[in-house]
Simulated scan of single mutants.
Amino acid sequence: MRPMLATKGDVVPTGDEWSHEVKWDGVRMLADVADGAERARLTTRNGNDATIAWPDVSPAPMDGRDLLVDGEIIGINDAGVPDFAVIQERMHVRSATTAARLAKAVPATFMVFDVMRLDGRDLTSLPLAERREILQGLDLGGWQVPPTYDDGAMLRDATLAQGLEGIVSKRLTSTYQPGVRSKAWLKFAHRHRFSFVVGGWRPQEGTKDRLAALLVGEPTADGLLYRGRVGSGISGAASRLLGAQLGGRALDASPFADDVPAVDARGTFWVEPFLVVDVDSLNKMPISRLRQPSYRGIRTDIDAADLLEG
């Protein structure tokens, strides 16, 4: 199953037919507990099995009672705020030993906001209000069920003041539609953080293989359009991780549908446009060229097609 997705909203809705939640800056995850299982099977929003990467999240609650839930895995930064950058290294782990070590050093929390199956019963056709009532009646142990709020405007102001990512507003009558981007769920983000697709990389000056900057673009109906070069925020560890992801994916020519300025194209190694990364910048939408961008991390939980859909 793929998770239900929210649409970008313009105005926070009001009225009794809506509820509002904090938008967490983490990794979307479905947790599926087969009846009697000791551990949940964790899958990302694009269907990848991520169980091995999260040994602190995967233990099944309620003695392995049959369950399927939707939520977000988060990590807390030094300021006490959920921050994707804290846990982005853990997303790519495929070694149980490494995952166990990182779980101790960088603990994660699973914030559960929906339930789609319980004791073999499919709940997806129930309205959100009923699913939430069922969810709040469960004892999920270390998994947390965050509260919902009636006043979306108040929550948006509060999350902005607290440095949180934003809010999600959901229609209480909405059924759970796997894999559908629905206008019954609306998302409102505070941060100027965007996801782009990598189309090329540039080495550090004086080297041939030390990745120091990315050339990124936005998938559109007209192809991958160039949005800028990102070098800030790429540490030594990030450089090695990016290099490993891009290895073996070289192209002879630019994958961008439009022209890349010569100052950016000079010395660039072009790559297949498959890798999605998060970038912070001073921009607001729409973006033609990034302003003072900073690399934040790789997004293996989404792909280029997801960005084209919005």
Rank of each mutant, 00 (worst) to 15 (best):
A257V: 03
D259K: 12
V230K: 00
L211C: 01
G231K: 04
S239R: 08
Q245M: 13
Y226M: 07
P261I: 11
G223Q: 08
L251N: 10
L251W: 00
R229T: 10
P261F: 03
G236A: 08
L224F: 06
R229A: 14
L225V: 14
A238I: 05
G236V: 10
A238W: 13
L214M: 06
T220R: 08
D252G: 15
L225E: 09
G231I: 04
S235R: 06
S232K: 14
G236T: 13
R227G: 12
D259S: 11
V260P: 12
G231R: 10
V230Y: 01
G248V: 03
S254T: 15
G217P: 09
V260K: 05
A244S: 15
L242Y: 07
R229V: 13
L214G: 10
A253T: 15
S254E: 08
F256T: 01
G248T: 06
P219W: 01
L246W: 00
G233Q: 09
T220Y: 09
D252Y: 00
L214C: 07
A213C: 04
Q245H: 13
G233S: 11
G247E: 11
A221R: 15
V230R: 02
D259E: 14
Q245W: 02
A257M: 05
V230L: 11
A244C: 05
L214F: 03
F256Y: 05
A213K: 02
A244Y: 01
L215W: 00
V216Y: 01
R249A: 11
L215F: 00
D258H: 07
G223P: 10
R240P: 01
Y226F: 15
V230G: 06
A250W: 02
G231M: 08
L225W: 01
L225Q: 14
S232T: 13
L241R: 15
V230S: 11
S254Q: 08
S254V: 08
F256S: 03
V260H: 04
A213R: 08
V230I: 05
P219Y: 04
E218H: 05
Q245C: 12
S239M: 09
S235Y: 09
R227I: 12
V260N: 07
L214V: 10
V216M: 03
A213N: 04
A238V: 12
F256P: 06
G231S: 14
S254A: 12
A244D: 12
A237D: 13
D252T: 14
S254N: 10
P255V: 04
L251R: 15
G243F: 03
A221N: 15
Y226E: 04
R240L: 14
G217W: 00
A253F: 02
A237K: 13
L241A: 15
L214Y: 02
G248S: 03
A244V: 11
G228Y: 09
I234E: 00
A250V: 14
V260L: 04
L251S: 03
P261G: 11
A253L: 07
L225F: 00
E218M: 14
P219M: 02
P219G: 10
G247K: 14
G217Y: 03
G217I: 08
S235M: 07
R249D: 02
R227H: 14
A244F: 06
L211Y: 00
D222R: 14
G233L: 04
A238L: 05
I234Y: 02
D258V: 05
L224N: 11
A237V: 15
G233A: 12
P255R: 08
R210P: 00
G233V: 12
A238P: 02
G217K: 03
G243E: 11
T220M: 13
P255S: 10
A238Y: 12
L225P: 00
